[in-house]
């Protein structure tokens, strides 16, 4: 027999998943900012072409 899910626990589960996804996305975005900064430093140090001030 199929039972309807409890709306309260369903809403809690939705919020839990949304929070987990938001946390993972925040970590990824933060890591990406660090990566872009590190790439910029590495390119400046290596004197690679394509940098605006070269």
């Amino acid at each position: 027999m199929n039972e309807l899910p409890d709306p309260t626990s369903q809403a809690a589960l939705v919020r839990k998943r949304q929070r987990a996804r938001a946390t993972v996305l925040a970590i990824i975005l933060f890591a990406f900012v660090i990566l872009v900064f590190a790439i910029s430093i590495a390119k400046i140090k290596a004197g690679m072409p394509g940098m605006p001030h070269q």
């Binding site: 899910p5 369903q10 589960l13 939705v14 998943r17 949304q18 987990a20 996804r21 993972v24």
Partner: peptide, 8 residues
């Protein structure tokens, strides 16, 4: 369950 967002 379409209302439930996918887990990361």
């Amino acid at each position: 369950n379409p209302s439930l967002p996918a887990d990361w």
